[in-house]
């Protein structure tokens, strides 16, 4: 078990392994993404309340569901960085952070587009999901900018690890406090419940496919980002130089 764990700490081992996995992951992602997007945007039957707008939801739900995973991943990677001082964990965390910010932004964008049709507004503070996603986006940005501000990569790794752990706890607290705020501040309006009307199999099956496609996409992007990071940081090691010479 521990030997397996330590293998993950070796950049070379990760580079070789991910090189072998990536073609399969990319192929799987291509299949799921094509099927999911085509099904979602062209063949999902119109909802009796929402009409064709519900097709946006298939994409939105998949992206939103995935974007909730980023802070926990970063917190776990951060813990590994702080406890075992594993460089690989930090490289993964760096790749995850920027991807997480993109996913949060896309979640907000697709949600707004759907909301503009269904709720008649692009932004609605009374919906706690919008508000807490916005603050998750802010916190991810703060992790990214802290990393870019710190020059020393060792310090940056540990500082970002700590901030990710604190941020992960904070996102949960923010989520609950925003919900609490909405239930007490302004009575929750009917719009919060309106996404519950689409739940037949013709809706959730493409959603499931999209969710799998998104997770594959995240895996592929994180692996590619991490490989890129490995090459940059390990540029002085022999195996990277051999790799470059081979072309």
């Amino acid at each position: 078990m521990w030997q397996w764990f330590h293998k993950w700490g070796s950049p070379k081992w990760f580079y070789d392994l991910s090189g072998r996995w990536l073609p399969w992951l990319i192929a799987g992602m291509a299949v799921f993404l094509t099927v999911g997007v085509v099904w979602a945007l062209l063949y999902v039957p119109p909802d009796y309340q929402q009409g064709y707008t519900s097709r946006i939801l298939v994409v939105h739900v998949a992206v939103a569901g995935t974007s909730l995973a980023f802070f926990p991943i970063m917190a776990i990677a951060g813990t590994v960085t702080l406890v075992w001082k594993m460089k690989m964990a930090d490289m993964v965390a760096k790749a995850v952070a920027s991807l997480g910010a993109w996913f949060s932004a896309i979640t907000l964008a697709t949600g707004s587009i759907w909301g503009s049709v269904m709720w008649g507004t692009w932004w609605e503070w009374t919906d706690s999901r919008l508000t807490s996603m916005l603050f998750q986006f802010f916190l991810l940005i703060s992790v990214i900018s802290l990393r870019s501000a710190l020059n020393d990569s060792e310090t940056a790794a540990r500082a970002c690890a700590l901030l990710s752990i604190v941020g992960c706890i904070n996102v949960v607290v923010i989520k609950y406090s925003v919900e609490w705020w909405n239930t007490l501040h302004q009575p929750a309006s009917a719009l919060s419940a309106s996404s519950g009307s689409v739940n037949g199999i013709e809706f959730w099956l493409p959603t499931l496919i999209m969710v799998i496609a998104m997770y594959l996409f995240v895996a592929v992007s994180v692996m590619m980002g991490t490989r890129n990071e490995i090459l940059q940081r390990e540029g002085r090691s022999k195996w990277v130089q051999d790799l470059v010479k081979e072309g």
Partner: peptide
């Protein structure tokens, strides 16, 4: 950068206080 780190984190307190 300090503002970017601290301000989003303070949201729960802001909510509790104003509520």
């Amino acid at each position: 950068i300090l503002a970017m780190i601290i301000l989003p984190m303070s949201v729960p307190i802001l909510i509790a206080g104003t509520l």
